[in-house]
Amino acid sequence: MRKDCNKVLVPRMLTPRPQPPQRKPWNSAPSTPIQSPAKSDSDSFLPKLPNEDSPYVKAKHVQLIDRDPSKSISLFWSAINCADRTDSALKDMAVVMKQLNRTDEAIEAIKSFRHLCTNKAQESLDNVLIDLYKRAGRMDEHVELLDHKLKLIEDGVAFGGKTTKISRSQGKKFHVSIEQERSRLLGNMAWAYIQQNQYQKAEELYR
């Protein structure tokens, strides 16, 4: 093959070889104190329980710290029998029962012992019951309770007569308006009607 003599070859520039850095005399650095390991994320989310030896606190400790839901149920029963924070004990016990698929037992517990709770706790217990009825497939009772709560809104009794309330979910607080609550209840009722094959009633609620 004939070379192209007219092509000018540009020599590649040689880059200078880097010189090794000069060693500096070694000096001992000041010692750094060893820091204790940072707390893990799981530790930071551990609930803070009151420093007391009451039946309810024992139940919450077993539920959240020891993570033994079955054992916590018997301790919640003890708290209810001792009238120790009955509102919270009954509600928390029902939630644990639901987690263990003991839904019917949770329903009967609330219906049988809610009279021991304060008037302020009744609305919260109703919300737990709504979820339990839904989980258990007890649609007639589900619709009946939803209808009752909607009438409380119409009569101006829900939320203690206020237009908003503070709810809690997964440790966070947020405001709920009376209209948001009404929409939530209507959505639940429409879903229940669909489960009962009452599609016309469900459609009327979705309009």
Rank of each mutant, 00 (worst) to 15 (best):
R2W: 11
K7T: 09
L9M: 07
L9W: 07
P20R: 15
P20S: 12
P20I: 06
P21E: 11
P25A: 14
P30I: 10
I34T: 09
Q35S: 07
S42W: 10
D43A: 14
D43R: 11
L46G: 02
L46Q: 13
P47Q: 04
N51L: 11
E52A: 11
S54V: 08
K58L: 10
K60C: 06
R67S: 01
R67T: 00
S70A: 07
S72L: 03
S74G: 09
A83F: 07
A83C: 03
R85Q: 14
R85W: 02
S88I: 03
K91M: 12
D92T: 12
V95Y: 05
K111Q: 14
R114Y: 13
H115M: 10
C117E: 08
Q122C: 05
D131Q: 15
L132E: 09
L132A: 08
G137A: 03
E141H: 05
H142N: 04
L150S: 00
I153T: 00
G156D: 00
K162T: 02
K165E: 11
I166E: 10
R168Q: 12
S169F: 07
K172V: 10
V176N: 02
M189N: 01
A190F: 03
Y193C: 03
Q196N: 09
Q198G: 01
Q198K: 15
R207M: 08
